[in-house]
Structures are given as structure tokens and as C-alpha cells.
Amino acid sequence: MEIGLNHYLVLSTILFAIGLVGIMRRKNLLLLFFATEILLNAVNIAFAAISHYYGDLTGQMFAFFVIAIAASELAVGLGLLIVWYKRHGNIDLDTMTSMRG
């Protein structure tokens, strides 16, 4: 059976759904970051597949920029997480209620 674009898009959807479930059920912020990485990777697969099946390199370019954004988001996010952990001793999402009005 020939593997077409739809196969890759279905796989990308499944991975994206897994990432969404992870974002919804995780309390620990570090594991929440893992779930966002899954989301970005799922989108990258879809970009690369569309780039291949339409013979266009724009999809791959977008995938590169997504990887760059993921790396910088991680650097800043982990720095903020370390600051929060030094100050409060945990990284649970439910304890971060200081902004509640």
C-alpha cells in the first residue's frame, strides 16, 4: 500500500492530540513543556510531508523556524522555571496563583 500525504497528516493529528492531552492533564510545569515539544514536533511532521508531496521547500523552511522557536522558548522557559523553583521550592501549576485577582 502506497503511503500518501493523508497517512502523514493522520499521524501528525494523533501526535498533536497526544500533546493536547498532555497539556490538559499535566500539573508539573516541566512535563507541560514536554507536551509543548510534542505539539511542535507533530506540526513539523505535517510541514515536512506537505513539502515532500507538493514538491515545495516552503514547508521545510517553516519546520526549521519552528525548531528555532522551540529552542529559544525552551531556554527562556527553563530559566524562568529555575527562578521560580529557587523562590518557591516547587513547580506545580496549581501553586502559581499569585496573579489571581
Binding site: S72, V76, L78, G79, L80, I82, V83
Partner: peptide
């Protein structure tokens, strides 16, 4: 910018 922010924060 992300690298500088990471160094300053951590």
C-alpha cells in the same frame, strides 16, 4: 536574545 535571557535568569 533567548541565550542572554537564559543566562540572566539562571
Amino acid at each position: 536574545v533567548a541565550m542572554v535571557a537564559g543566562i540572566v535568569l539562571a
